[in-house]
Design a protein around this nucleic acid. Structure first.
Lengths: 188, 188
DNA sequence: AGGCTAGTGACAGCCACTGACAGTTGACAA
DNA sequence: TTGTCAACTGTCAGTGGCTGTCACTAGCCT
């Protein structure tokens, strides 16, 4: 992470990473499937945390409410999860590296797509629906994650990106789904 | 495309592609920035077409209506666009290769994200809004493209994926946004 | 004829990644 | 104490995507 955030992803070779932790290149590839996975390791941790938060929501909550609360509560506790492995500040710097590195951003988006599918199945299960018959679980999750992506992008662009700012942004943007879908924006 | 769809993306080397069109490897890289770009070239064409369709919508249409109609009309005319370059059947086969090849899917999603930003700016302009102040353009486009991604994924999974099926699926799934956002799914 | 440009090939090199082979270490059973 | 197994490691020799450099050709304008 130190190398990635200071030199940049492309200008960091696997040999340099291996040397920094005093290990052969071959050994690096035994721990990580590739340079990409190493770069996204922190991010993967937090994503897993959010999935857990969704899984833990009480069964009586309506789908969208469960998703919203899971994410909002998730942001409140995320710092503990990160801090157990690395300073939060490293996480924030690394997020910016991901956003600004095409191959990393691409990989990140693909992983998000996989997470979406996973959560859609979770929602379908909660509601007792078949994810391949009823379109609503996947549509709901797609709408939800679409908004989350916009939010995280905006957050990364802010100069003073902290975890509290992220929570506030997420909440504000989720509230905009209704207005955004309204027929005529000019009439409001 | 022929090589990619028969042998698979990973099992096709740039040398093979270059040899197939009787050109040196170096020349291949002068025409395409990489193997990836070559594989996504057809897809890029159709995306450009959809952006044009959005740009062509009359200014008085509400945002979501403009997006829906642009995409639906887009599917009606897409076959001409594709057929000018390759058989539609190649396009469909190639879409499946993209879906099933991790690096291609990742690249595809990243490009979609760029297109989203482009369209959000288009929508903001139509409505006379500042895309960095009003959240609605980006949120609306995110919701919309989220649904489109679910649709295209489902379409690719169908055995008889044709362009008409795609249009129908798109329409059906866009209609599900309302129901998916409804509070309690069980009450309906 | 001279010079410009676009397109090309050949060659050498960087880097991510993989397969094959050979240690080393610690835990545990004989 | 000794054999054995599993987990981890290093070395080496590739393959394949991609880039920089140099030299060449064909068409085209002056």
């Amino acid at each position: 992470m130190e190398l990635f955030t200071t030199r940049g992803y492309d200008r960091t070779t696997v040999d340099e990473i291996a040397a920094a932790v005093d290990v052969s290149q071959r050994t690096f590839f035994r721990h990580f499937s590739g340079k990409e996975e190493a770069a996204l390791a922190l991010e993967a941790m937090t994503v897993a945390h959010f999935v857990e938060m969704v899984r833990a929501r009480p069964a009586h909550e309506p789908p969208m409410a469960a998703l919203s609360r899971a994410v909002l509560d998730g942001w409140d506790r995320i710092s503990e999860v990160i801090e157990a492995v690395a300073p939060v500040e490293v996480y924030v710097r690394m997020y910016r590296v991901i956003e600004s590195t095409p191959v990393l951003l691409a990989a990140h988006l693909r992983r998000s797509a996989e997470t979406e599918e996973q959560i859609a199945r979770l929602i379908a299960e909660r509601e007792g629906l078949d994810v391949d018959t009823d379109p609503r679980p996947r549509v709901a999750v797609a709408v939800f994650s679409g908004v989350l992506r916009v939010t995280e992008r905006l957050w990364g662009a802010q100069p003073d990106a902290g975890l509290e700012a992220m929570r506030a942004l997420t909440s504000a943007y989720l509230d905009q789904v209704g207005p955004a879908l309204a027929g005529d924006w000019r009439s409001r």
